[in-house]
Amino acid sequence: MNAFRLLADLTHLLSIIILLVKIRTTKSCAGISLKTQDLYVLVFISRYLDLFTRPLSLYNTPFKLVFLATSITIVYYMRYHKVVKQTYNKDSDTFKHYFLILPCAVLAFFINPKFTFIEVLWSFSIYLEAVAILPQLVLLQSSSNIDNLTGNYVFMLGAYRALYLLNWIYRFFAEDVVRWIPWIAGLVQTALYADFFYYYIKSWRNNERLKLP
């Protein structure tokens, strides 16, 4: 465990809390992509199957349970809550996210740490997480005005994986740990946020509304 890793996981948790606060307080999920949230549920389920097969960890296990519970809750709100589901931008959330699942599954089938059910699904979840934000970024580009909570949510979500990159650099030098699969996927994931980060920081510095081209 190192400070980067701890900060990364807390940032990830914070992003989810921001989203839950937004949905619960404004009773609205405007600007949030349900497809991205669906993909995150799939990411967490396929990644945390090891909850049943591996020894529980005082640190990881609570986080895994919270991530699973919150991601499922968010999808439940967006799909079934009578008020919230009316605010979902169904016609703008158009990204064909099913097209992301098959390539990740095929890639996981061929590139994984070990060809077992758990490891292949784990690899699938790593690849899927890298691209899961795409529907959300596409939705933001078509949103006329992005509310602050949504902007902060996406920013924290991108920042957490960037912090994981620092964690991996630290672990490479301090613990001589090499992990190609999460490293490359994490780089791709963070790179996808590059233009969002640029516009987010620009809008923050000029103290103006966040607007993606």
């Binding site: 996981d9 591996r54 960890s57 990881n60 986080f63 740490p113 964690n167 740990v177 992990r179 999460p182």
Partner: peptide
Amino acid sequence: DEIADSHDEL
């Protein structure tokens, strides 16, 4: 072992 390691992160 390598496999155990790949699961020590979230």
